[in-house]
Design a protein around this nucleic acid. Structure first.
Lengths: 225, 225
DNA sequence: GTCTATAAACAGATAGAC
DNA sequence: GTCTATCTGTTTATAGAC
């Protein structure tokens, strides 16, 4: 680690930087980029308005820094989820399905358990609806590698081709059925009569999701014969 | 039809109202509520800034009017989709599954074919992420009735209870796996190498979605025995 | 009903003291 | 590096002419 990145060097300046990034992530996620003023961010970070321009060049720079933070955070989680295994490894269909199940569980778990998850998901959702350079970093750093990895697992589980159109679509659907519970949170809670989507509710979601995945994989395997 | 609602009475004033609502829907959807100025809306509607305050009381009133327009639009589509049938009717498991398939097809088709669909979905997504009074109208007018209707069909197809927790979750997942393609549009297009999500791409999505639904329903029916 | 002019508040960026 | 004061532009809302 040379001077290109300085993770913990200057505690004073870096503390300010970090506080600003965290505040920005939270507020951008909650109120949107346009709905958040730099004054608001500075206030929440216990910094002053000028520090944003100093550290990040401006409001736009803060958005990119928030995106980088998200990539870093998810990467850490994903790395331990996949056990730091290399891209390809020989697994049986059952092992692959178990790993997919574990991933589904982890995805729901992350969205529920992690305190920052709400803001991160909202931030990404907003970027998806109006892509900026920040989405580019998140796509390249998170979306692409995770989706690709799941496609490999899916292929191992079903016997289909990993990079085929059908597999890629299937994996998107598997992700979609789960993250929808966070996206449409407000509607889900109301229709389900849930006061919150906490661990108890997450467990129910995971249960149904696993059942669905198992049914789909079984059908695909049967179709392959 | 009494004077409570005046759909086509005053062509001059109503044309302005309608133009403002359409412009607001489009711009709120694309750029968000905070990201859109009333000047921008007025300009696109070929009206002047003052007319917003006059007709809707202010920017917030326009948001509610846009929500009402969405409810009206979707209601029309849904009505013809379900054939104006009453709440409950005796259908076989196969008929129910066929109706679910048709609904999935219609949902994807709507999101792709309708020119306003993009803005409507985006508008609703933004409301979901930061609920206001507008979401309340959309939930009550669209979300709730449609989800409830699908639950009935799901119950008829699988033999499960219509208002059980599992059924409600399953229906949300069915919706989620499909609408995710619109929500994560930017990421999907990039990963799928699609220049657009048009009719051709929609057909592929529909194909996989139907397969998934069929597999899940079959597994549920088998589990019931 | 429509449109213009203006008010009052607030935005992001910056220059300069410390 | 931090913080304050200020500049410039833009926001919504409104009052009043037509």
């Amino acid at each position: 680690m040379s001077k290109t990145q300085t993770p913990q060097t200057n505690s004073a300046a870096d503390a300010t930087r970090m506080a600003l990034v965290m505040a920005a992530l939270q507020l951008f996620g909650r109120q949107g980029f346009d709905g958040t003023s730099t004054r608001e961010i500075a206030a929440q970070a216990n910094a002053n308005i000028g520090s944003i321009a100093y550290h990040f060049g401006g409001k736009e720079g803060l958005r990119l820094a928030a995106a980088d933070y998200i990539v870093e955070t998810i990467r850490t989680i994903v790395a331990q989820a996949f056990g730091g295994a290399a891209q390809i490894q020989r697994v049986t269909s059952e092992q692959a399905e178990a790993q997919i199940d574990a991933t589904v569980e982890r995805m729901v778990g992350f969205m529920v358990a992690r305190p920052e998850a709400g803001e991160i998901v909202q931030f990404v959702l907003r970027e998806l609806s109006t892509p900026t350079d920040a989405l580019d970093r998140i796509y390249t750093g998170v979306f692409e590698p995770v989706h690709r990895r799941l496609c490999q697992l899916w292929a191992a589980a079903t016997g289909e081709e990993a990079e085929s159109e059908k597999t890629r679509i299937s994996v998107f659907m598997m992700i979609g059925q789960v993250v929808y519970f966070r996206i449409a949170r407000a509607a889900v809670m109301r229709r389900m009569d849930w006061a919150d989507i906490g661990p108890a509710e997450a467990a129910k979601v995971i249960g149904v999701a696993k059942e669905n995945v198992a049914a789909i994989i079984a059908a695909r395997k049967a179709g392959k014969k």
